[in-house]
């Protein structure tokens, strides 16, 4: 067991865990933040995506040891005070979420993409989301949600991860 201190959605947290325990399991089991999902456990599907120091990572591939001192943003930290974040609102309106299992990861990937390219073109969107698999939508409506979000004021006023 190692003691790990990190900041999750703005809150400092200290946990005890085996050093190689996956960040995904720490979030889901120790911190009861179940928004990050395990789709594959091997870095292929992106349903476990979180932001680690502002970078998009697959939390199934991150040993908790590597998250010491890190600032983590999960889907639970994207909305503020019961108000949907504009990205969430756009996914809702455009039909970007069907079964919803990929949605938390998609929304975090979108957030990361829009930080990098505030007005992304279609190719940038396609490539920016290529690490997040969605089996339901065929992605079309997700692209539309991202495009709408890029035009919505406040999209980049996300509670800053750092």
């Amino acid at each position: 067991m190692t003691q790990i201190t990190l900041t999750i959605n703005g809150q400092p947290r200290t946990i005890e865990a085996p050093p190689l325990k996956r960040l995904l399991d720490v979030l889901r089991e120790d911190l009861h933040l179940t928004g990050a999902k395990e789709g594959c456990g091997e870095g292929e599907c992106g349903s476990c995506s979180v932001l680690l120091n502002g970078e998009l990572v697959n939390s199934c591939l991150v040993p908790i040891l590597q998250a010491e001192g890190a600032h983590i943003t999960t889907i639970e930290g994207i909305a503020s005070n019961e108000k949907l974040h504009p990205i969430q609102q756009c996914f809702l309106e455009q039909g970007g979420a069907q079964c919803g299992i990929c949605t938390p990861g998609m929304i975090l990937a979108t957030h990361h993409l829009l930080e990098k390219y505030p007005q992304p073109n279609l190719l940038q969107i396609q490539e920016g989301l290529a690490g997040n698999l969605c089996r339901c939508t065929g992605y079309t409506r997700i692209f539309q949600a991202v495009q709408q979000a890029s035009k919505t004021p406040g999209t980049n006023s996300v509670p800053s991860p750092i």
Partner: peptide
């Protein structure tokens, strides 16, 4: 018309409870 899907808010918030949650 295209109203918002019923369980949509829980899904975009990451609060929808799937079995492993």
């Amino acid at each position: 018309s295209s109203p918002i899907r019923k369980e949509g808010v829980a899904k975009v918030l990451g609060r929808a409870q799937y079995i492993d949650d």
